[in-house]
Nucleic acid binder design. Structure first.
Lengths: 189, 189
DNA sequence: CCACCTGTCTACCATCTGGTAAGGGCCCTG
DNA sequence: CAGGGCCCTTACCAGATGGTAGACAGGTGG
């Protein structure tokens, strides 16, 4: 149910998703959905929670690793892109929910803010220690985030233009993001 | 009416926009809207047409200018970004409509395809003449397009994060795009 | 065997949605 | 002044939507 909702919210949007359609696509009645998630909004919240948990899990695994400094940044970026490639619909939801005034945007922020704050503190500590070049950490993080979300747009635009599902543009985006981060952060480059 | 519809479609999405709300926001009845645009879909089409006309006008003005080769590319990029900065809601609609299966996506393509084909032919001619480096012109164009659309996401994410409306990230994005294009196209770089 | 809980169902509802039908004011033209 | 197009209105509707209420089946523990 969460998977189906994720797919529908990510492609048709929250307002564009009807519980009836969603349920009939699953071969059940919508009341079953409402039984588990109370309301449509509750379903969205659960989906957002699930997506955030996926992302956080992937990031935590990297943070538990042994990479340091710039290597850690690179590993984090690669990890996020890996999740995105494995679950393209996830990006769709992220984009849908990245819109302010959108239901769920606030909830997503609730999940992401601690992560962002943590990342920001870490980066600033690295900068203070001279292992990273000084720059605006928050702006950097938000820019990276929007780049990842932007990949969703790119994939869809390419598909709409008839270009087959190729991962080359995605890899290219990742390379650009890494280059951007490197130029901003790496003191040795 | 077109302006209000553009804003609503761009922020709340097509499915998330109700004609009643739209009309009451304008101080009129929804039947007045339907009188002019026949249907909600017709309104969307008109908005898409209007947006496409704005973009095409801006691009045509550059094409009528005297820049050549790489300078022309740079002028085109700057022109598009200027329009985007002047009308941020325009990017919202572009993003909304850049989603496949979205009503209006096909219509937008109808406007953009000739432009894209023309740009592609021009780039390929330049490449054949040795004034541009050889690369996949279509992929390049679509990547540039999705970068521009991605700016919409970035602006909204920044605003949601409490970062005031600053144009620095947008300028940064433009610089990145130009650098990307330059690296792909400019034979002298 | 009974009471209870859980999960799904059918039945139903209030509201909102886009859209149709028709009327009235306004202005221009004959 | 009559007629007709233009623009906007009120009145209304059929269908879809999210949500509530309650029945039914199956499993579990006492």
């Amino acid at each position: 149910m969460l998977d189906a909702a994720l797919a529908s919210f990510g492609t048709a949007g929250f307002a564009g998703t009807s519980l009836d359609d969603l349920a009939s696509g699953l071969g059940i009645r919508k009341q079953t959905i409402l039984y588990h998630f109370v309301s449509k909004r509750g379903l969205l919240n659960a989906v957002v929670d699930s997506v955030a948990a996926d992302l956080i899990l992937a990031l935590e695994q990297v943070l538990a690793g042994s990479q340091r400094d710039w290597e850690r940044v690179e590993a984090l970026v690669r990890s996020v892109f890996r999740v995105a490639l494995e679950q393209p619909v996830l990006l769709g939801l992220l984009r849908e929910v990245s819109r302010p005034n959108s239901p769920g945007a606030q909830r997503l922020r609730g999940h992401m803010d601690p992560l962002m704050a943590r990342a920001r503190l870490w980066i600033e500590a690295e900068m203070a220690a001279g292992r990273m070049r000084r720059t605006d950490a928050q702006l950097l993080l938000l820019s990276a985030y929007s780049t990842v979300v932007g990949v969703a747009t790119e994939i869809e635009v390419l598909r709409a233009a008839g270009v087959g599902p190729t991962l080359r543009p995605v890899v290219q985006r990742r390379r650009e993001l890494l280059r951007f981060l490197r130029a901003s952060l790496d003191p040795t480059s």
